[in-house]
Measured scan of single mutants.
Amino acid sequence: GKELVLALYDYQEKSPREVTMKKGDILTLLNSTNKDWWKVEVKATANDKTYERQGFVPAAYVKKL
């Protein structure tokens, strides 16, 4: 199945390749080969529509579930 990670801290994206997350968010882990930056998929809701974004977050800010 898919691997999930838990956001340990809030993170505000600093570039278009990154994604914003809030502490407590559960994210889908896409790639953890880089030890510093993990690629995740974030589900977000805006205007009653759910959309998914993929991007990088600092590996130290998340932990595998």
Results as ranks from 00 to 15, higher is better:
residue 35 K to M: 09
residue 18 E to G: 09
residue 48 D to P: 08
residue 36 D to K: 14
residue 9 Y to E: 08
residue 33 T to D: 15
residue 53 R to L: 07
residue 11 Y to G: 01
residue 58 P to G: 02
residue 48 D to L: 09
residue 51 Y to V: 12
residue 25 D to N: 05
residue 63 K to F: 09
residue 36 D to V: 14
residue 62 V to T: 03
residue 29 L to N: 00
residue 61 Y to R: 05
residue 7 A to S: 05
residue 13 E to S: 15
residue 20 T to K: 03
residue 42 V to D: 02
residue 23 K to N: 04
residue 31 N to K: 06
residue 42 V to P: 06
residue 37 W to V: 03
residue 33 T to G: 08
residue 21 M to D: 00
residue 52 E to N: 15
residue 17 R to Q: 09
residue 59 A to W: 02
residue 17 R to L: 13
residue 33 T to C: 15
residue 22 K to M: 08
residue 21 M to R: 00
residue 53 R to Q: 06
residue 33 T to M: 11
residue 63 K to Q: 13
residue 55 G to F: 07
residue 9 Y to N: 07
residue 45 T to N: 12
residue 27 L to M: 13
residue 8 L to P: 00
residue 43 K to P: 15
residue 63 K to C: 15
residue 47 N to R: 07
residue 15 S to F: 05
residue 14 K to L: 08
residue 17 R to P: 05
residue 48 D to Y: 08
residue 24 G to V: 01
residue 57 V to F: 00
residue 16 P to H: 10
residue 46 A to V: 15
residue 36 D to H: 14
residue 27 L to R: 00
residue 30 L to S: 02
residue 23 K to V: 06
residue 21 M to W: 02
residue 20 T to E: 02
residue 10 D to S: 08
residue 51 Y to P: 09
residue 22 K to G: 04
residue 47 N to F: 12
residue 54 Q to K: 08
residue 37 W to D: 00
residue 22 K to Y: 10
residue 34 N to K: 06
residue 34 N to Y: 08
residue 37 W to M: 04
residue 22 K to R: 12
residue 40 V to P: 00
residue 28 T to M: 10
residue 52 E to S: 15
residue 58 P to H: 03
residue 5 V to C: 13
residue 60 A to R: 14
residue 48 D to T: 08
residue 42 V to S: 12
residue 10 D to V: 03
residue 46 A to L: 15
residue 12 Q to W: 12
residue 35 K to E: 09
residue 11 Y to F: 06
residue 42 V to E: 04
residue 36 D to W: 15
residue 32 S to G: 10
residue 41 E to I: 13
residue 2 K to H: 13
residue 1 G to D: 11
residue 57 V to N: 01
residue 26 I to P: 03
residue 35 K to C: 10
residue 33 T to F: 09
residue 13 E to T: 07
residue 6 L to V: 15
residue 62 V to Y: 02
residue 40 V to H: 00
residue 19 V to H: 00
residue 3 E to N: 11
residue 34 N to E: 09
residue 22 K to A: 07
residue 32 S to C: 14
residue 37 W to E: 03
residue 21 M to T: 03
residue 41 E to P: 00
residue 58 P to T: 01
residue 48 D to K: 09
residue 62 V to S: 00
residue 56 F to T: 03
residue 14 K to W: 04
residue 61 Y to V: 05
residue 26 I to V: 12
residue 48 D to N: 13
residue 4 L to T: 07
residue 41 E to H: 07
residue 15 S to A: 08
residue 14 K to F: 05
residue 28 T to G: 07
residue 9 Y to V: 10
residue 22 K to T: 08
residue 64 K to R: 13
residue 4 L to E: 07
residue 22 K to D: 03
residue 5 V to P: 00
residue 8 L to F: 03
residue 54 Q to T: 11
residue 28 T to P: 15
residue 61 Y to K: 06
residue 18 E to M: 05
residue 6 L to Y: 10
residue 43 K to M: 14
residue 33 T to S: 14
residue 31 N to A: 08
residue 65 L to F: 08
residue 17 R to K: 11
residue 49 K to T: 11
residue 25 D to K: 02
residue 43 K to W: 13
residue 13 E to L: 06
residue 1 G to A: 12
residue 45 T to G: 10
residue 9 Y to R: 15
residue 14 K to N: 09
residue 3 E to M: 12
residue 61 Y to L: 13
residue 57 V to G: 01
residue 47 N to Y: 11
residue 40 V to I: 06
residue 24 G to N: 05
residue 53 R to W: 06
residue 56 F to E: 03
residue 14 K to A: 09
residue 26 I to H: 03
